[in-house]
Amino acid sequence: MVLVLTCLEDPTADMVIGRLNARGARIARLDPGIDFPASISFSAWFEDRLHGFLNTASRHVALDDVCAVYYRRPTPYASNHPSQTDRFSALQARFGLGGTLASLPCRYVNHPWKILAAEHKPLQLTTARQVGFRLPPTLITNRPSDAWAFAAEHDRIIYKPLRLTSFVNSAGEPSTIWATAVDPGAIDDTITRTAHLLQARVDKTADLRVTVVGRHAFCVRIESDLLDWRQDYDRISYTVVDSPPGLADAAIALLDALDLSFGVFDFAIGRDGSPVFLECNPNGQWGWLEDATGIQIAASIADLLLETPK
């Protein structure tokens, strides 16, 4: 039995579920933040071992039978209700059902608490340096004087959000802040309001997207004329390439250090041909890459979920 925790509309999870079905796995798909308690009931006993059951609209799941959890994109447990009673109930659901699912003694791809920790860019950058990746000079600050000094030291700098977050702009439209070139003259005292990540811009020839599943690395070279290629997927071309020497081993070492078995890495390819680490998304998107190139990421994730833990 494999639990798949994700939202209702998730074509990427559908790809993995298709592979699991082909291997004869039993699957229970649920979105705890939406489905509980409307269509989910559960009980868990914590005695000599954790055991219990979980009922969905179509499945009865014995917690003892769960061999793996695929944690994709479940809806967050809503704890921002205006009603104090609703806020209390949502938090109890998060720590009760969510805590139980996170405590199952099985394989996770990836464990939600490990994902949360690994999403912190300072931890990523520190770990990336430890495993031997080359990094662009980076500053996280809310001090204008340090931001000005950093801009003066480096020829060109960019701003990147410390966490990619959607918001509604002044026109009422959904928006996202991408990596953006910074004019040093635009840095002013408003920088004091929060933390900002500034980075020396890499003089790159292309980008490299590396999806690591267990001990396997899938490398795709991305050609784009944009600073941040995610802004327009219609302006991208893809080429499946071999992993540069040492990169796959270092990427696996980074995941091992963060107790992860899956990660999506982004590198810039410098003029000298060497990769420069930008970030690792512990729950990154990859489905469109498989569609565009034919690389077998879904099959590899299914294999990992069904692999007997060592």
Results as ranks from 00 to 15, higher is better:
residue 188 D to R: 11
residue 230 R to C: 01
residue 159 Y to A: 12
residue 161 P to I: 04
residue 177 I to R: 10
residue 204 K to P: 04
residue 239 T to G: 04
residue 183 D to R: 14
residue 196 H to A: 00
residue 155 D to S: 15
residue 227 L to S: 05
residue 196 H to P: 00
residue 227 L to T: 05
residue 200 A to Q: 06
residue 173 E to G: 02
residue 182 V to H: 07
residue 234 D to F: 08
residue 240 V to F: 02
residue 157 I to H: 07
residue 182 V to R: 08
residue 216 H to P: 00
residue 229 W to L: 07
residue 225 D to V: 09
residue 196 H to S: 03
residue 210 V to D: 00
residue 170 S to K: 11
residue 194 T to M: 12
residue 172 G to T: 09
residue 221 R to Y: 07
residue 244 P to N: 10
residue 245 P to D: 15
residue 248 A to R: 11
residue 235 R to I: 01
residue 172 G to V: 08
residue 248 A to Q: 10
residue 245 P to K: 14
residue 181 A to V: 11
residue 238 Y to W: 06
residue 206 A to M: 03
residue 232 D to V: 02
residue 157 I to G: 08
residue 217 A to L: 05
residue 224 S to Y: 06
residue 246 G to P: 09
residue 222 I to S: 02
residue 222 I to G: 03
residue 181 A to Q: 12
residue 229 W to V: 03
residue 207 D to E: 15
residue 199 Q to E: 01
residue 185 G to P: 06
residue 160 K to S: 03
residue 160 K to I: 02
residue 191 I to G: 02
residue 185 G to R: 13
residue 229 W to G: 00
residue 201 R to V: 02
residue 206 A to L: 03
residue 205 T to F: 00
residue 170 S to E: 15
residue 169 N to I: 09
residue 186 A to G: 14
residue 222 I to L: 11
residue 216 H to M: 10
residue 244 P to G: 10
residue 176 T to L: 15
residue 241 V to C: 12
residue 165 T to D: 10
residue 189 D to A: 15
residue 226 L to M: 12
residue 185 G to A: 13
residue 210 V to L: 14
residue 209 R to L: 03
residue 221 R to E: 15
residue 222 I to D: 02
residue 244 P to H: 09
residue 244 P to D: 09
residue 222 I to C: 02
residue 225 D to K: 09
